[in-house]
Design a protein around this nucleic acid. Structure first.
Lengths: 255, 255
DNA sequence: ATAAGCTATAACGTAACGTCAGAGTCAAGG
DNA sequence: CCTTGACTCTGACGTTACGTTATAGCTTAT
């Protein structure tokens, strides 16, 4: 009943290496592994693989795909609706390019010059990219209202003024420690140590900070200017630096 | 009148780095460069860029694209016809995927299982890939340069100055050895031995030198005066002598 | 029991750029 | 005339999503 790598690979038209890779980065881990270490995929895994291929077709990176389909708020049906819309846009783009090809042929035949705006407007991806970003943003926001959020609400509701002060001071200390090591780059052991402490601090004070959430948090620090401004008060560029360091930290966790 | 990098980049919706890259690999070099080293693109360059983007859209690698559009037999109009066909296939593929998405939605709503063949057949690329290969093959043949050319490009691209020096010196040595035996005629064993070494040298340094290619090369040495002149620098008449010796060598191989 | 065909991990390679760093260029405004 | 900000250059290392190769263990049919 379970499928081995090559069976899956042949069935869906991808390489064995691709499946290995997806396993490695934690995007699609087989439901089980036998005693010899062979990966065994179930129908459920294939369903997930289909999802992955949809996202891939639409130009999402594997990391984004992973973040989206693993987020607690992920709604498969809603995702598929979104896919359909994006695919329609993609088709429109191809139609535009086809028109552009036809026009170019005509311009050759008729000896007519084509102007440059005309020549390149069909390649425009901004519409599609916008939709993608919106989509990614949407799903990210959704999980702001999930378990982590609830847990946080519950914990913080009981905090006294003194508790808050302690938490803020601890955060302050960690930020400053990171700033003091900034010159050594985001991958530096001391920085990574501090980043680990930071994650623990969040888990202790607010909610269970999973690697996924932690990564998302890092992204937020650069994408939301309110966060950026607040963090950069410690040192200009800290937000970006922190995001990078958190990213590296999460990457290392997965290995 | 000429455009600078950023102007082009903004006009077509790609990055400056991409243009740098295309220049670097020789895919799209600007028509001119000013005294400060600034790249200056003309309308003609933009036309070529449009071609490149078409090929890119269709999934050709930059190397393939380069080979195709630089080949003497390249016919722009014919290429565009081909593009149109491929784009139509691509659109069909997207239509299939859209159908697949719809079916998946239905299967969720209806609680119906979708079987695995069904699930993945839309992602199939074989049709498109086949067309691409056919296309690439077609234009390649027109050129006459085949795999040997490609192999040579690949090998030689990695050579350092030292490598080149070694190769040239080895060729030099072989030529001189042949000259030293010229009085004994092209069929002489020592000459034939040297000719064999020469063929091996070509295979090692450039491309798999089959007997057919080797024979053709010999012909080239007398038919193309640039080759003749170069070889006759060692000794007047060497080119003709070498051709004869290579001819005999190949005849002997076939027996 | 042995070959053929599959599996594993590890590690290096590749394509098409992205992303700095360090330095020169150029047009507009003070 | 000089400065400043936006633009340009050339390296050169980083990244993504795998491809490729090497080495070794497993499994199945003859």
């Amino acid at each position: 009943m379970p499928y081995k790598v090559k069976e899956v690979a042949d069935m869906v038209g991808i390489s064995v290496r691709t499946l290995h890779h997806y396993d490695q980065i934690g995007l699609l881990k087989p439901e089980s592994v036998n005693s010899a270490g062979y990966r065994l995929y179930t129908d459920h895994d294939l369903e997930k693989l289909q999802q992955v291929l949809f996202f891939k077709e639409l130009g999402f990176s594997l990391q984004e795909t992973k973040d989206i389909i693993n987020s607690p708020g992920f709604d498969r049906k809603n995702a598929l609706q979104n896919h359909k819309e994006l695919l329609l846009k993609k088709r429109n783009r191809i139609d535009e390019i086809i028109k552009s090809v036809e026009k170019t042929i005509q311009s050759i035949e008729g000896g007519i010059e084509m102007d440059n705006k005309e020549r390149f407007k069909a390649f425009d991806m901004s519409e599609i990219e916008k939709h993608q970003e919106k989509y990614a943003e949407e799903t990210k926001q959704k999980y702001g209202h999930t378990d982590a959020y609830k847990e946080s609400q519950k914990k913080t509701s009981k905090y006294t003024k003194e508790d808050w002060a302690a938490i803020m001071s601890r955060g302050d200390e960690i930020y400053k420690r990171i700033v003091s090591h900034m010159d050594k780059g985001p991958a530096d052991p001391d920085v990574q140590q501090a980043v680990g402490d930071f994650r623990q601090h969040i888990t202790d004070s607010f909610y269970t900070c999973t690697p996924e959430i932690f990564r998302g948090l890092g992204e937020l620090y650069v994408s939301d200017e309110r966060f950026t401004a607040n963090i950069d008060k410690y040192k200009l560029g800290l937000a970006q630096f922190l995001r990078d360091a958190m990213h590296i930290y999460c990457d290392n966790l997965e290995k």
